[in-house]
Structure formats: C-alpha cells, structure tokens
Nucleic acid binder design. Structure first.
Lengths: 248, 248
DNA sequence: TCTACTCTCGAACGGTGTTCCTGTCAACAC
DNA sequence: GTGTTGACAGGAACACCGTTCGAGAGTAGA
C-alpha cells in the first residue's frame, strides 16, 4: 500500500530515513503521456518559478502545465505549503558540501552560502517559502550538518557554530528575497516607475530635507555595491566576528 | 484639491517633505460616526495585525472593521501594497533614535535593532511587508540616518557603516519574520502537530541516521537559545566584525 | 470474472485583491 | 436660495486563489 501524501509528509517531518520505496504504481494513469507523480509536480513547479517567479506558482498553474485540473495534485501533495517544502528540500539537496578543510573554513562557508544564494536567485522569490520551511526535513538538515562540520573543523566553538549557521542561513534567505524583489521591480511593471537607477537615487538623497545630513553626505556609500558586494561584505564581517570570538 | 491616493504615494516615494497639508475635508462623510481616512485605515489595520496576525490583514477585513465595503478603501489607499508601506512607515516612525554617543555606539545600535525587533514582533508577520517596502519613504530613511549617525560617531568607516546598516536591517527583518512564524505554529493549528518542544526535537536529532554525526552530537547546541539569545549573539558577532574592520 | 483499490478530475465553496458605476452629500458660485 | 461641482461611500461584479467532494476510470490480485 503506497502511503498517502499526508503520511509521506509526516514521515518527512519526523526526519525519517530518506529511502523512498519507489511505490510501484498501481492505479490508472489514464491516457496521459506522463503520469502525475510528486517528482513531476516538483519539476513543473521549478520550471514555473524559474520562468515566472514564485508569485506565479499556484496550484492551478502547475495543474494547467500538467494538463489537468487542480484537484489532481492533491493526491500527491497535501498542500501548497507541502509543495513549498518539497521545493526547498530539493533545492537544498543540490548544494554541494565540501570536505572540511581546517585551513580554509572561511572560504568553504562562503562557498556554501554563495551556492545557496545562487539557487535562491535562480528561482526568484522562492526564499519566501524557505522562511516557512525551517528545519523541516533531511535535506535542510544535511546543509546544517555540512556547515557545522566545516565550522567545527575551523576551530569554532560548538555553540557559536550552531548559532552562526542559523544567522548565516537567515541572512542568505533575506538577502536573496530582497534581491529577487528588487530585480522583479527592475523588470518594471508599469507603475513601479519610481524604482530608479542609482544615479537618480543619489540625486534624490542629495535633495533630502534638513534632518538627514548623514544620508545626504554619504549617499554614494549607501547606494554603492553592485553585484554581490553587500553579500560578500556581510559574510566577511560575520565570519570575522565569529573568528574573533573563537580565539580571543 | 486634495491629492488622489496615487499622487500621495508617488510623493511618498519621491521622498518629498513629510508635511501633510491636512487636506480640509470636503465631500460627505455620510452618516458615519468616524470618516474614512488614511489614518483610520492604518489604525484599524494595525489593530487587526496585532490581534490576529498579518495574514488576517485583508482589505475586506479592514473594511468590515470600518463598517463599510472593500471598495471604499480604494479612495484613500492605492493598493494592499500601499497599505503595507504605510504600516511599515508608521512602525519605523515609532522607533526612538538616540543622540550618538561615541563611547556607546554598540549599545545604541543594539538598542535600535531591539526596538525594531519588538515592533515587528508586536505585529506578528508584518516583517513580511517590510521586505517589499525597502527604502521607500522618509520614515525608513530616518532610521537609516539615525543608525548611520551612531556608527559614524563610533568611528566606523562610512562605507562599512552604510553596508552594515543594510545587513542589520535585513537580519532583524528575517529574525522577526521567522520568530513570528514559529510563534504562530506554537499556537498549534491542528495538523501542525509536528512542531514540537525542544526536548522532542533533541530526541529526534539524537535518533538521526548515520551521515549526521555533528548534528547528532551537538543537538543540544543547535536547539539551544530561548528568548532572544540568538538575536543577541548575531548582533554581537556582526558588531565585533565591524569594529575589527574599523580599527585593524 | 469479480472485487478492491488507487488515481483522475469536473464542479463547486469560500476566500482574496481590485474595478466599475451609481448614489449621496458638503461646499462653493451666483 | 438655488444650482453646480466634485469628492466620497458602497453594492455588485470579475478574475483569481487554495481546497474539498464525489463520481468515474482503470489496474492488480482472488
């Protein structure tokens, strides 16, 4: 008897082994070319998010792409939230974890965070779902495990390491979410016209009323940082602080 | 001629002066006890979010609380997003900014961040709206100005200070959002039953399969941290890293 | 062949943000 | 005092969302 989606999800949250019994298909596949499976749903969902953003990911949209009705999905997925967790799970599973190298623990942490960031940015807005997912399944826990190993190898105290992983994940999530929103606005949907270039932003800062002297003076610094400069800066600062804490 | 909501919002995004002309009311207020104004809408919205969470904040819910229909709101507010921005703006306006004290810049930054965190947590889930708001209006810019002044007084380099403010805001947002979600789950809505106590979580970590040695060994550290311990830790680490960068 | 079981999916429910359009009333000009 | 103007109020509707129900279809084992 293949498990219901509810059982499957409960199992996932119970942190059980990830061994999937492959559930030999019984019931009919109708006359459809490709049967509806959890994997097919997740694949389709990823494609939609990649092309149209997380906001376009709706049950109906997935069902339409699968050439069926929305209710057909609920035999494989208990919820929209369940689908979100599956997406985050697979996304985390794609991250390559390094073999801990005590001499290069900072670089290794930065690399993992950058991988995570790039995955989030590849699927714009999906980090919103990551906030709700938390430490729900084995895949996210695998990330924690990997980063913990790197930090411990680097000589960071266990408690510091554990909390630092939390902070780093949170920051990467937040950064990716904001970056996704900013990019979507840059794509310019009509009345979002007040989203402007850096030059324009600097000009506005310079024209600020009194009471904003610092902002006016350091408008250049505030608006600086293309690419992932801010990201690199923040990770550098956090790791510096962490290293200082470990070896006083 | 009083401005349309569109003009009002555009003005806000243009970072114009915050001087409100008070727009002497003309049109009818009907037989209603309290006329529908932007402030009334925002007040009502805050009450709803405080009592029922951000997810309960819908146009219809606000309208019902104001004893009217949803369409009546659109004469004062452009959008749901517009309402969100107004909420974030007022929330930021409540923050008390200190007079910069070079001897206590770390404490002052921590205080401002804690204020922001507590405001976010007072209105659960509202930090979701803060992500989309960005640096949109004068109120959020006032926060930037205040923190910038503190950091500069503390001897932090302008570029470091500007980026640090970005990182700190992002982290405070993310932390508050996650804390809100966690608390709402702790309130226990039926099938969220797998959200468990720390003891139960530690037990599950201990029962993890092979391949998770660090997580298993340091389950206590990972699940540690009640109250705002993690928050304090992260801010401490970031400010340490920042200080180290300023005085090498 | 018959039964049991799983998968499929049209239809519907209650909710959402938003728009259209009409009616109503206060303030001004004459 | 009267007419005009124009902002405000709000009912009804649209398109969409997540989700549920229940009937139908098809395969696997007895």
């Amino acid at each position: 008897m293949s498990p219901t989606p509810q059982q499957r999800r409960a199992e996932r949250h119970r942190l059980g082994s990830g061994a999937k019994p492959a559930a030999n298909r019984r019931g009919p596949s109708g006359g459809r070319k490709r049967p509806i499976t959890v994997d097919a749903i997740v694949d389709t969902a990823f494609a939609i998010v990649e092309n149209e953003g997380y906001e376009a990911l709706t049950m109906r949209r997935v069902a339409t792409a699968l050439e069926t009705g929305p209710s057909s999905l609920y035999a494989h997925v208990v919820n929209k939230q369940d689908l979100d967790e599956l997406l985050i799970g697979r996304l985390c599973a794609e991250i390559e974890l390094p073999e801990p190298d005590p001499a290069n623990w900072r670089g290794q942490i930065i690399d993992v965070c950058a991988q995570l960031r790039d995955q989030y940015l590849r699927y714009p807005g999906i980090s919103r779902a990551a906030f709700a997912a938390g430490l729900s399944n084995l895949d996210t826990l695998r990330l924690t495990e990997g980063m913990l190993a790197v930090l411990l190898a680097g000589g960071v105290a266990p408690q510091d390491a554990a909390w630092a992983i939390d902070s780093l994940s949170l920051y990467v999530n937040a950064y990716s979410l904001e970056a996704s929103l900013a990019r979507r606005r840059a794509a310019g949907d009509a009345d979002d016209a007040w989203v402007v270039s850096r030059d324009e932003l600097m000009r506005r800062f310079a024209a600020l009323p009194d009471g904003y002297p610092q902002t006016r003076r350091y408008a250049a610094e505030i608006t600086a940082g293309g690419g992932h400069d801010r990201f690199d800066f923040t990770l550098g600062v956090m790791l510096d602080g962490l290293a200082a804490r470990s070896r006083p």
